[in-house]
Design a protein around this nucleic acid. Sequence first.
DNA 1: AATGAATGAGGGTTCATTCAT
DNA 2: CATGAATGAACCCTCATTCAT
Lengths: 206, 206, 206, 206
Amino acid sequence: MAKPPVDEDRASIARAERRRQILAAAKHVFAEAGYHGATIGAIIERAAIARGTFYLYFESKEAVFGALLDEAMYELRRRIVRVETGAGSPPPETQLLDSIARVLEYIVADRALAVVLLSSSWTPDAEAAARLHAFYDEIRSVIALSLEHGAALGLLRSTHPRRTAAALLGLVRGIIEYCVTEEIEGEISQVTRELIDVALRGVLRN
Amino acid sequence: MAKPPVDEDRASIARAERRRQILAAAKHVFAEAGYHGATIGAIIERAAIARGTFYLYFESKEAVFGALLDEAMYELRRRIVRVETGAGSPPPETQLLDSIARVLEYIVADRALAVVLLSSSWTPDAEAAARLHAFYDEIRSVIALSLEHGAALGLLRSTHPRRTAAALLGLVRGIIEYCVTEEIEGEISQVTRELIDVALRGVLRN
Amino acid sequence: MAKPPVDEDRASIARAERRRQILAAAKHVFAEAGYHGATIGAIIERAAIARGTFYLYFESKEAVFGALLDEAMYELRRRIVRVETGAGSPPPETQLLDSIARVLEYIVADRALAVVLLSSSWTPDAEAAARLHAFYDEIRSVIALSLEHGAALGLLRSTHPRRTAAALLGLVRGIIEYCVTEEIEGEISQVTRELIDVALRGVLRN
Amino acid sequence: MAKPPVDEDRASIARAERRRQILAAAKHVFAEAGYHGATIGAIIERAAIARGTFYLYFESKEAVFGALLDEAMYELRRRIVRVETGAGSPPPETQLLDSIARVLEYIVADRALAVVLLSSSWTPDAEAAARLHAFYDEIRSVIALSLEHGAALGLLRSTHPRRTAAALLGLVRGIIEYCVTEEIEGEISQVTRELIDVALRGVLRN
DNA sequence: AATGAATGAGGGTTCATTCAT
DNA sequence: CATGAATGAACCCTCATTCAT
């Protein structure tokens, strides 16, 4: 009674491993060529598997792309927490800083993923594009709510929440793009702090 | 023989007109489908020309895309001026605001162009991507220089110039994306003011 | 004013010619390999055209097959006329004989077409199969009606019309298959007469 | 050691059983999709066996198809007996009727088999097609011989034997197709009698 | 004996590009 | 100059077959 389960486990672990391997290959190919430019040929070459094997793990090119996005979105959502202002909570600024730091660390550590997330908002056909779009919308909403909350508490200035949220999301994406392009790893916390500083206090001296 | 030159002019004007017509069609197609997703078939259909005619005006698909970027970059460069601090110059904030307003007006008025510029930074193959990349780098440099300048004059806080520039560029792109997606036209000046406000003073109350 | 129309005509004639050429090639390939076994590669090789050219004339493999069937069914329908029994009409037997002779002549002259029509009633997917099926049903109905008509007039024996019609249709198909396989051309009229004879009077001596 | 043979028997029985199971599954799949449209995947799914297991019992897709035909042809041959005219034999008409009734009963009871037999005469590649072709030829010969025999005895009219045989084979196939398509089971004997009647006496009243 | 993951040749289709008219 | 029919490389995907477990 011991063997079968072990075998099944082994098999299922191997399968999961294979899947990750293909996903990783696909991520790089999508990053380098974009959704349409990416070819199954490139993916399987990078994953060092046969053509047919790919379709054992993913139904289609679209499906891998979707899986990629889903995974990334899941990881990102995990790292973003709404700012709490109850008694005993850490100062809002710290909470915000932590969320962003977690996101930046995750993304900057995975250049390819960053490229996919930053670039694919428009290109791929329908489905996936819509999903990514919805994701960004979700984040903008979180930011907008936080801004309104902060304003209500008198912590933040009163601005058009969604517009400002869009600007701040862009700001973060700008930094990510920079970090990814410039190979700046390591002192993410420093970058994060600067980022927050610009967002909170602007670039003006006073 | 006075005529030929006139004929040539007329011909060359007609030719330029045709070229614009193709470029405009291509812009929309690229915006809707992305670089790889766009097809010559879609472009010529929209431009209402024959297949062969396209190749009379552009060497290849890559070439139209390049021309599109070049034109846009030219227009954008025209609208961005370095902030001057000499005596008699308008206040720096005003100058900055004017630059951004001009850029926003141009871009938001041409949704398709905005989409192409925002999305294509990674996708198309090599050449054009590099050019767009270089363009964004150039803008980041302009911003970084302005930041350093402002800091030297004691107007701005001292920050890591390129990093902050990247953040600010992202901020502008975030707003553009928002305006383009949300169909907010008309009160661009208002949006611009808000944008500048966030950039200069941050979201914090004090 | 004379040229353009002529050009158009020439072009449209050339186009029709090309289409026929592809249809003919497809007919042979379908006859040799069946619907699924047929490949576009085989068709274009036989038609001596490039892969893409095929798709300039037909939307898909299914489409050529459909066009093939439609054409054949049109030709067959033209050759089948309901037996008339009004005063002054030729004797029913003669009319029947003429219909069948016309059908046999058409089909036996085109071995490949015969094979396609005889074999494809089951295989190809859905659409075309249904169309062919409906066609055979239509013919069975014509036969059944004629049988009922003949019985009402006291010319024919009273039998289960649809069952007998199915048997007679099979009889004709059996002969066609035989003629096509055995390379018997030429004296079709003789074969037709025999066929009718068996159908009308059976094989029994008295 | 008395056991091994028993084990072998048991094993060989089990093996034969498995084989039948696969054949049955294959028959349905071939009937539904045709030779080329049928996939090993569909067969093993229907047989509820693993992919590799299939190849333990059949060398290839072609091989199952061949086995299917062989089995069917064997069963059909068993049911067709040449008409005997010796003293003490049952009347020829009865003998003929019995043969056909046996064939019809066998075939109509197995719709899938009927479809395979009726449709696959042309499609599958070479080998199997030739075998089925040969089988039909064999039947045509039996019929032709019977016709000649009957004519020699003065029972049947004198006709071109092979041509008439082809027509009669077609007639039977037409009825089979009808019975299979129209879901008419049960009173096969009635259908058979009608069939023979048409074949022997034709549709004419006199 | 049984399994099912892996393979890769080959199928249908698209589309950037050319060239005779 | 303009046209659009023709081309064929390249793409995504399927499926018969193999082989390590």
